[in-house]
């Protein structure tokens, strides 16, 4: 661990005016600093910023402040009522202690759990050390991604919350030295390609201020299903967030996102296309799941994730259309 300065920002301008590394709940950052993976010299604590509210937007949507804690968000009445998928996703993640610390902004930027990324004694990690290779390929890879991987990186994006936000088509509001902008979550996360060190669309100094959710769609059913080895306190092996409108035995509209299998929160467009307008039957769900996983490229130990993810989609769709 190396020395660093610490300051607590009192305003968004003060925060974005520095060159420091933002720290919110610290549950990702401090962990990685202790491991020697993150080595910031200047920490800017953003938890005092006035971004800790959940408000209704004029368009009927919801605006979530970046400092809202994961547990507060999960238990917020508006989230419970209209965005159950988000609440369920949050509560399936980490542990109560971690959720009490973790923030919305921090969760969006949590890093992969790839064990080789987390251990600097492996110099070969393209994400940590661009151009150095990838220790996970040929290593222990059971938890690794099967969708969106590249020859440079197969690390899974570990978040549950972001999977729900992807299905909800959230928009991320950021503010930086060059001003404010909005980024659709679909454009926020980057595929690893040849530059797995570039994980998202943020520019240097940009602060996540809010996450906006569109107005809830009437009659939509929402489900978050997380599959894993043990019953709690484990990242997903496969998860599915579903926001679906099912009526008259047919799927009218649906958004599906997958977790635990992708290098980023994975929007399953193919499955959505296969389902829209179709009868809500097990056979159609399965066919859609097959489509969703068509591009899967498993490693030596995680081939099971392909079938598991398919079953996750089928079960989540079954629940959403029940």
């Amino acid at each position: 661990m190396q020395s660093f300065s610490y300051e607590k920002a009192q305003s968004v301008e003060q925060a974005t005016g520095t060159t420091g590394k933002f720290i919110a709940g610290g549950t990702t950052l401090v962990d990685l600093m202790k491991l020697g993976v993150e080595t910031p010299t200047q920490l800017v604590d953003v938890t005092a910023l006035p971004l800790a509210q959940v408000e209704t937007l004029p368009n009927g949507g919801l605006r979530i402040g970046a400092m809202v804690r994961n547990s507060d968000l999960a238990h917020h009445p508006a989230v419970g009522k209209d965005y159950a998928v988000l609440s369920e996703a949050l509560l399936s993640g980490a542990s109560p202690q971690l959720r009490n610390m973790a923030t919305t902004g921090g969760n969006l930027l949590q890093r992969t759990r790839c064990p080789y990324f987390r251990d600097p004694s492996y110099s070969n990690c393209n994400k940590r050390n661009p151009g150095s290779g990838c220790a996970a390929i040929g290593g222990h890879n059971r938890m690794m991604a099967i969708l969106g991987t590249s020859d440079a990186c197969i690390a899974t994006h570990p978040s549950d919350m972001c999977v729900a936000l992807t299905a909800l088509e959230a928009t991320i509001q950021v503010e930086g030295p060059k001003g404010k902008r909005s980024i659709a979550i679909a454009d926020f996360y980057k595929l690893p390609g040849t530059t797995p060190n570039v994980e998202n669309a943020l520019e240097p100094g940009e602060l996540i201020t809010y996450v906006d959710l569109p107005a809830p769609r009437k009659a939509s059913k929402q489900v978050y299903l997380k599959l894993r080895d043990r019953a709690s306190y484990e990242f997903a092996l496969a998860s599915a967030a579903v926001v679906a409108e099912v009526s008259g035995g047919h799927v009218r509209a649906v958004q599906i996102a997958l977790g635990g299998v992708g290098t980023r929160p994975w929007r399953a467009h193919e499955a959505e296309a296969a389902l829209t307008g179709k009868p809500a039957t097990a056979a159609h769900f399965r066919a859609a799941a097959e489509d969703a996983l068509k591009g899967a490229k498993p490693s030596s130990e995680n081939g099971f994730k392909v079938e598991l993810a398919k079953r996750c989609i089928v079960r989540a769709m079954t629940m959403a259309s029940a």
Binding site: H140, R230, A231, S232, Y233
Partner: peptide
């Protein structure tokens, strides 16, 4: 490679 309490799985309360 799983030498920590998050990655080495033991039974939890649930």
């Amino acid at each position: 490679i799983n030498g920590n309490m998050a990655d080495y799985l033991m039974a939890t309360c649930p």
